[in-house]
Design a protein around this nucleic acid. Structure first.
Lengths: 205, 205, 205, 205
DNA sequence: TATGAATGAGAATTCATTCAT
DNA sequence: GATGAATGAATTCTCATTCAT
């Protein structure tokens, strides 16, 4: 990160460029529909560099997944239950015509690579658990965990539908419009901790 | 012309066999990850027969989609709002270790074929609309439609997560266990018609 | 050839139908570009019948060639030198938009089948020899034979160019228009027997 | 960067090698009878390189055609009418047992690719026109143009017959032997400009 | 570090042919 | 005699990967 202008042959930079491009393409088109040449061309570098930096197509995918996971964790790290619906709305709202596809999509894309798949599953499990924890989940309370997983499923479903396209008004709803139904959804499934579990609806201040 | 013991050379049967196999593979592995040879081998027939009966890979996919759509329509034709959560639970509960992947998955798989994609989108749109209608949707009421789409998204998300695997207790929850959270979810998003529409929760002071 | 109207399942008739269709397609599109299914479909019969009647694709081609050869021999059997140019003009003039492609084309199409190729070569050789004989060729007179072969080559070339298409006025010239240049050509190369060899030009009666 | 002993990995060289091989095979066997694997194997390189350098089989054929056209134009660029028969004899004489088939053959080979076919037709038309021009053709003079086309047809026919093989003495005639009949042929069809046009036939002692 | 050349495996698709009815 | 089902062997083309510079 020195002040070297007009740099070429910058390994870390090239690597990052490839990674970024790959994340977008994998998320948008899926693993097997994306070719390494597509990625390299879009990144403006030579295909062989992918092998250099990521070993193989699967290696690249794994790196994309790890990066996406880190990003998701960073963004949702200290989420409170009361803002979960906003976070979801946020993620979903990002997906639009021109914008980059949500990295959540990566979590739904299988590469056939067992290692990458295990990472994916781990992240999904972990996300649901954190969600459940925020809702006061304690070991053995399978119902809360299940409900958290349903919330996660709904989030992924919305992201998915938006990426599929052509379903109005969901397709173009903005963050605030999405937040309403999502708040109801979260409230119904994961009532705030200190309240009696069946009293959905009053998610208070 | 005997009582069909050990028949071979049965066109409709072979066609159906191919279609069934293809539906499972496409739903499970996605369009581009599935090879025609895979399908033919699994069906125990020669690859060239796929061309004979379905013209091309895209033709086969389109046939799968149409078949899935018909099946879905048949199964959910006259659904009442009060049983929507049961239908969803039903669909989701079908997906287990050995069982066939839900045909709903097909609706989320893109083939790149524009014609098939349009069918997919049409079915998705239509499903959401029927759901909204059951909830008393009337033209111009975008909020109810949006909420119906969120319910659909949640259903698809659950199916998706179950097909991804390894997320307990969602993975192995049975129909009745799933029905609970789903009832709450549907109730929260699509209140029964005869209730005042705005009485969901107390959304803010 | 009895007076049996409304016949189906007529072996010789089916065979003839296939042969006729095959001759047209092979002449028009060449051996390897023509598929048996094309031929069978155009003839309105089942593909398997080709195997029944002609053994194989090569067998069918050979049959076409033989038939074409017979036809050519019949039409040009007793040609006089003075009418050679008319015969050529005739053959060439047949090739037009809608009409059937000249069977001469078959003589230029290789099938890769050694036996068929030998037939082709034989016919070509023989044609040139008959032409030379009409011009008074005697054993050892290689020059006359060569000239006859050049005349044959020119004929084939014209047929070929017409079948290629899009070269006016050659493409649409009628028999009489073609006859002029062809008479000069034949006269120049194969002077009538009783005249001194170098005195081309007076092809009068 | 030594003095090019035993070089490999030379793109232009590989491309040229493929092109040369393809020209020979296409000219000899025709478009559909020639497989890309044949060409690649004969050239000693991998099949995939054809796609790399020429996009597709049709692309390769088009490149062959263009190359052949260029070569023909270069060799016949400034032909005088009086030497036309020598040029034809030259072309024809090249075709022998071991030698490469004349590139003229390519002009008669259809690929089914409309673009390539248009090139072919264009070249043929143009050749005839140049020939006619050398003979003093002026707009509207269809007769001279037709005669030039017949000369072209004869040339192609000779080339064709030689490539078919097995027709003596045409098959092995050398340039000078061919020149005689060809001179007569050209003279008969395209009398020299400064002579009265209708005086064909008696070209004096 | 980066590039372009070259490869081999595997994809869909086409087609002549054989089998069963 | 005729048909349709089924097969296996190509063929073109795509793509991840490796090699040489």
């Amino acid at each position: 990160m020195t002040a070297t202008p007009a740099r070429r042959r910058d390994a870390t930079r090239t690597r990052a460029l490839l990674l970024q491009t790959a994340r977008r393409r994998f998320a948008r088109d899926g693993y097997s529909s994306t070719t390494l040449r597509d990625i390299a061309d879009e990144a403006g570098v030579n295909v062989a560099l992918i092998a250099r930096y990521f070993e193989s197509k699967e290696g690249l995918f794994e790196a994309c997944l790890t990066a996406a996971v880190d990003e998701i964790k960073r963004e949702t790290g200290d989420a409170q239950l009361s803002e979960v619906h906003l976070i979801i709305a946020d993620q979903a709202a990002r997906i639009g015509e021109g914008g980059p596809p949500s990295q959540l999509m990566l979590l739904l894309r299988s590469s056939g690579d067992e290692r990458a798949d295990e990472i994916r599953r781990g992240v999904l499990r972990n996300s649901a658990e954190r969600l459940a924890a925020a809702a006061g989940h304690h070991p053995g309370d399978d119902d809360t965990l299940l409900r958290a997983q349903v919330v996660l499923a709904a989030s992924l479903g919305i992201v998915l539908l938006r990426s599929v396209g052509a379903m109005e008004p969901l397709q173009t709803a903005d963050r605030d419009t999405l937040a309403g139904p999502l708040r109801d959804l979260v409230a119904a499934l994961l009532p705030a901790r200190d309240e009696p579990k069946r009293s959905r609806g009053s998610d208070g201040p």
